[in-house]
Nucleic acid binder design. Sequence first.
DNA 1: TGTTAGCACTCGTCGCTGTTGAGTGCTAAC
DNA 2: GTTAGCACTCAACAGCGACGAGTGCTAACA
Lengths: 359, 359
Amino acid sequence: MDMGERKRQILHSVINEYIASAEPVGSRHIAKNLELGLSSATIRNEMADLEEMGYLEQPHTSAGRVPSDKGYRFYVNELMSDYQLSLKELDMLKTMMKFQIGQIDKVMKSAADFLSQFTHYTAFMTSPEMKQGAIKTVELVPIDATSMLIILVTNEGVMKNKRVIIPQNVDTDFIHRFSNLLKEKLSGLTLEEINVVKIQEIKEAMQSHFEMLFPVLDFITDIIEDVRKETDVYVSGTTNIFDYPEYKDLGKAREFLEFLDDKQSVTKALEEPYNEKMQNNDSQKSRVRITIGKENGLNVMQSSSVVTANYYMGDRVMGKVGIIGPTRMDYSKAVAKIERISNYLNRVLSELYYDDNKE
Amino acid sequence: MDMGERKRQILHSVINEYIASAEPVGSRHIAKNLELGLSSATIRNEMADLEEMGYLEQPHTSAGRVPSDKGYRFYVNELMSDYQLSLKELDMLKTMMKFQIGQIDKVMKSAADFLSQFTHYTAFMTSPEMKQGAIKTVELVPIDATSMLIILVTNEGVMKNKRVIIPQNVDTDFIHRFSNLLKEKLSGLTLEEINVVKIQEIKEAMQSHFEMLFPVLDFITDIIEDVRKETDVYVSGTTNIFDYPEYKDLGKAREFLEFLDDKQSVTKALEEPYNEKMQNNDSQKSRVRITIGKENGLNVMQSSSVVTANYYMGDRVMGKVGIIGPTRMDYSKAVAKIERISNYLNRVLSELYYDDNKE
DNA sequence: TGTTAGCACTCGTCGCTGTTGAGTGCTAAC
DNA sequence: GTTAGCACTCAACAGCGACGAGTGCTAACA
């Protein structure tokens, strides 16, 4: 059985209706809404076909039809039209963009917060991936006689720091000299390039009278290890799910919220590999990726969809922004909004990047 | 009517029972449990008295009795016995304490995470209050020709940083000299002492050839302003509330979670002034403070209780740790556990403090 | 051959009903 | 002052029928 134009129209209508109402859609309703001059009986036949083909499902015998994951997938790939942001929405965006304040992590957080308010779904943002980040500078700041701060700045403008206790008293000048040496040795290396071997090399290259500061080098490997592992996820607007009847069941809501609370599992969910079923004609151009229901392996996520976009600094992928919501999601709005946000982030970050390369 | 020993015993028993079962307690049950050799009818009379006195309430005519806020308050102040941690609990604590890793904010977070698992309620932690913190050091780290990082370290070991763009090219050495100057001028001042006037003074004291770096000073005021306003709350274990039947209603759960999501309102709830009704004989010695139901002004919190303790560095209050849960809370366990955690924090922070004063 | 009207059937939802049981308050006797 | 007894209250629950939205099938129609 093949998907004629009429079936497409009916499927489209069912999905639109269901997205709006959250209630199973009946043939009568479609017959009225869609002005094809067809009776409900005919629609009924077509819908039975669509069900057989796997695009629709019936919660129970005498209920209307509900889109299946496959149905949504077809909708997303073939039927969905581009959503044009309303004036009000554009205005919100504009206001938000005024808050381009300096610190990178704050930009991130506020973007995620905004996205959750903007879409009414739960928004998330993964922190910049730093594996390929290069070290811009290393600085040792003495705090007192026995402790100092190690500060690492990468070329993404990200900064990590750690306080270190030194066993012996060391004078400030000495620390400065050591600091300069480190800067010289480490600047420009990517985080991937700095490994145990490299550190050993540096140790050997140093005069032995720096020996007492060798623990500092070990701390640096620690920090880098931390940074590498650290894929922070920031989640915003978790309570938005209460707006959707699919989570009206306490158990469902709980499951979902517990899932979001566990950053590790969220990260895992977002790392989910791109699989063939998810291919989407639009994805190349829009860079927005959609995972529907069971397409995502996780149990908890079976009735949720995830819409994400990467964001970039220059050409390098930095992380992901996106939303999580019920499979019955307004995909076209979601895509349009996420596209905007990711473009916004690209712009802000590219400005930073540009600054960096001005030297 | 006065509260005789028998009434106290009955009230105690009702509350214990209710805390354990979450179900209205009947006279028959008490008669059996409490071995006073009294019949349920007698207990019934006493309970009617306790209700008249305001310590108990009846959800509806033919249900058992439930403690009122006043009842809990009496329980907390007069009846409750000290809870002795079990071996298993002590062991958990021990394990947790091994994670005393360096960075102050990580210690905080892991303490809150632990507390929520330990108590099964929702835990929170307010970030160190820094108003009275003194500046330990200021450092300017050049990143490239047109930008640098301002790093502020306070004597609590807290660190703030901000990236700053400088309009003109300035050489590294120049920045270093300026940095040293700043360090000299600002070190030792408390955040409260640094205000616009002070900054102006510094500007004037500087030679005019530093003029181009004056914007940096303005950024410093910005950061300090940020730090002052910033009373970060870290909340952990929000989904624990799903374990308690008082939140089995979706609306209730939602309300509660939305409240916790809004950091500002949480901060406000915790700032709630100490009011006379809350006076507690134990509070001086234990430093644990309990707010029961409506004692806390907020609407959302009418059926929740908050148990908090301050934590200190040396003699100075740094912030609060605590838990939020239903008024039907196991107060004695809660108090015991929070006491431990706050002691632990005091110890960890005092070590930092001690380190700082070693110089 | 595709479309449609008609009809029997399914099944979840809603409101009503009666039953059950836990718990109370009151009264009268101890 | 205590208690046994009893009538009363009320939430929770299960059973029941009416309702209605929606279906699938069949037979008639263009």
